[in-house]
Computed example of a mutant assay.
Amino acid sequence: MDNPQRNDNPWFMALYIGGAGGILATYILIGFFAARWLVGMVEGPRYWIAIGTISGLVLGSFHIVMLIKKMMGEQDG
Rank of each mutant, 00 (worst) to 15 (best):
A25V: 14
D76G: 09
M72T: 06
P45S: 09
M41W: 07
Q5I: 05
D2Q: 08
M41Q: 06
P45G: 12
G60F: 07
Q75S: 13
E74C: 01
G52R: 00
L15Q: 08
L38W: 10
P4Y: 04
P4K: 08
G73C: 07
M71H: 10
L59H: 04
M66F: 06
L59W: 06
L24E: 05
F62S: 02
G40L: 08
A50I: 11
A35T: 02
M71S: 14
A25S: 07
S61R: 05
I23W: 06
P45W: 03
L57H: 03
M66C: 15
R36S: 05
I68G: 09
V42T: 14
I64L: 04
T53G: 01
N9F: 09
G19W: 04
V42N: 05
I68F: 11
A35Y: 01
G31P: 03
S55M: 05
F33I: 13
P4F: 01
P10I: 12
V39F: 04
T26G: 15
P10R: 04
F62Y: 08
V42H: 08
A25C: 05
N7S: 09
W37T: 00
Q75K: 15
P4S: 06
V42Y: 09
L15V: 02
A20S: 15
L38V: 03
I49D: 04
M71I: 12
P45R: 13
A25P: 02
R36P: 00
F33C: 14
L15Y: 00
M72Q: 08
L29A: 14
Y47L: 14
M71N: 12
D2T: 09
M1P: 07
I17Q: 10
Y16T: 02
V65N: 04
I23C: 12
D76L: 13
G77H: 10
Y47P: 08
S61W: 11
Q75A: 15
M71G: 04
R6A: 11
W48M: 14
L57F: 05
G73Q: 13
F33Q: 15
V58S: 10
D76P: 01
M41H: 15
N3D: 13
L57V: 10
Y47N: 14
F62I: 11
L38Q: 05
A35E: 00
G44M: 13
L67P: 01
G73I: 13
I54K: 01
F12M: 07
M71F: 12
W11F: 12
W11R: 09
F62K: 07
V58G: 04
T26Q: 05
L29E: 11
M13N: 02
I51E: 04
P4M: 01
P4H: 11
M71K: 15
V42C: 01
V65W: 15
R6M: 11
A50Q: 12
L15S: 09
A14D: 10
L24T: 01
R46I: 13
I17R: 06
G19V: 03
K69N: 10
P10K: 01
L38H: 13
D2S: 07
A34Y: 08
V58Y: 07
W11S: 08
K69A: 04
V39P: 03
Y27D: 02
M1S: 10
V39R: 06
I17M: 07
G40N: 09
